[in-house]
Computed example of a mutant assay.
Amino acid sequence: MPAKTTSPRRLGLVVAAAVLAGALSALLPVGDAHAFTVGTQQTLGPGSRMPVDFPGRSYDLGGKVPRGHVMLRRRVEVARSEGRRGLSFLCPGGTYAYSPSLVEGASIGLDIPDVSQYQKKLRRFRLRVYASPLAKRDPAVSSVYLLCRPRR
């Protein structure tokens, strides 16, 4: 039995369709190409003013970062189409992750997939961020904070 081969006519049509599709895609407007962006980790040391509240904790907006504590900040940019993206903080030596926070009215949200991190005195803290459905702009931009406490 002879092997089936693609006819030259059919092959020509497939090639023409591929070339036409490539040409048409070049004419389409380029959408807002965006990639999840995380800024470098910044540190606020003791004596600095706290730019956020830590709900359920005794650390309030405008209060000073206590001696031995460190507050970490990362600027995050995430589009709605990107869903939930992982974010990680690393507390300085001698401290452990205590509590994350956002600025009130932030255009991003956060969730903590492993809540057992609160029970362990770990330096690394992992969470996920996403663009709030109520964000006025896309991509959503805000800062995420983490308070690190001294080991005792």
Rank of each mutant, 00 (worst) to 15 (best):
G39C: 10
D53Y: 06
G94S: 00
A140S: 05
L87T: 03
R152I: 10
T5D: 12
P100R: 01
G31R: 15
L146H: 03
G31E: 06
Y130V: 10
R151K: 15
P66S: 10
R123S: 05
Y145E: 08
L44P: 03
T95K: 03
S101C: 01
R74W: 00
S132R: 11
K120C: 09
A23I: 07
M50T: 02
L87C: 03
G62S: 04
A17Q: 01
D32Q: 13
L11T: 13
P133V: 09
V141E: 04
K121I: 12
V115G: 07
V76R: 03
S48H: 12
G105D: 00
Q117C: 08
P113C: 10
D111M: 02
D60R: 14
V76K: 01
D32C: 07
L110I: 11
R9E: 09
R137W: 13
K64C: 04
R10G: 14
F125A: 07
G62L: 03
A18F: 12
L11E: 14
L27C: 14
A16S: 08
R75T: 09
P51Q: 01
L127A: 11
Y145F: 10
L102N: 03
H69G: 10
L87Y: 03
R152A: 14
P100N: 02
R49C: 13
G56R: 01
A33K: 01
P139R: 08
D111I: 02
R10C: 15
T40D: 13
L20F: 15
T37V: 07
L28H: 06
A23L: 14
P8V: 08
S116K: 06
V115P: 11
R49M: 12
L127Y: 12
T5H: 13
R149Y: 09
R126A: 14
F89A: 00
G31H: 07
A16V: 13
L72H: 01
L127D: 04
A3S: 11
D114L: 09
P2R: 13
T6P: 04
R149V: 09
R74G: 07
S58E: 06
G94L: 00
V141F: 04
R152N: 15
S25N: 15
G109T: 06
A135E: 03
D32A: 08
D138F: 07
T5A: 11
G45V: 10
E77N: 07
A135V: 04
G83R: 01
R152F: 11
V141N: 01
G39N: 04
A23Y: 11
A3E: 14
L61S: 06
H69E: 08
S107E: 05
Y130S: 15
L110S: 06
Y130P: 04
P92E: 01
A106E: 05
S88V: 10
L20G: 04
E104R: 10
S99R: 02
C148S: 02
V52E: 00
V38H: 09
I108S: 03
G63R: 06
A79R: 00
H69L: 09
A26M: 08
A135H: 02
T40N: 14
S101K: 01
D60Y: 11
L134F: 15
F36R: 08
L147D: 09
D53R: 13
V141Q: 05
L87E: 00
